[in-house]
Design a protein around this nucleic acid. Sequence first.
DNA 1: GCCAACGTTGGC
DNA 2: GCCAACGTTGGC
Length: 151
Amino acid sequence: MKYWLVKSEPDCFSIDKLKRERTASWDGVRNYQARNFLMEMKKNDLVLFYHSNTKEIGIVGLAKVSKEFYPDHTAWDPKSEHPDPKSTPEKPRWFMPDIKFVKKYKRVLPLYEIKKDTLLGRMKIAQKGNRLSVTSVEKKEFDRIEKILST
DNA sequence: GCCAACGTTGGC
DNA sequence: GCCAACGTTGGC
């Protein structure tokens, strides 16, 4: 089983919204590297949920993959937020998995704490200029995050 | 195939 | 609101 981290602006899609809706299709990703990670996700992989571009930046919750990748149909919907005319139902370019709410942590693990930690500070999320919205996480990193947030 | 210009992301 | 970092686009 693998571990991942997805970023989302809470104004756009928050952990509370995922909690309410229980399951969400992770649509709208239009970056090849991020897409490739989405396509690697296997059912039941665990996905850390991160809030970016907000007051309390950091890891806020946990989800898991409930459906492996399939075409992101919002790409060929001109009314969607991220239309891409080069992606068609016959030849889809963008894909998405479904993720299911697991839990919201009791507190936010803020980015500055992640950066301070010697182990977590090496995560992609902690590095300057990182704009990738989907990244992989190592088991030891995941375990450490769970441990920090469980106390 | 290079690279400058441009748009977007996202922390601060 | 600022700006650095990065991905994408398009002219050549």
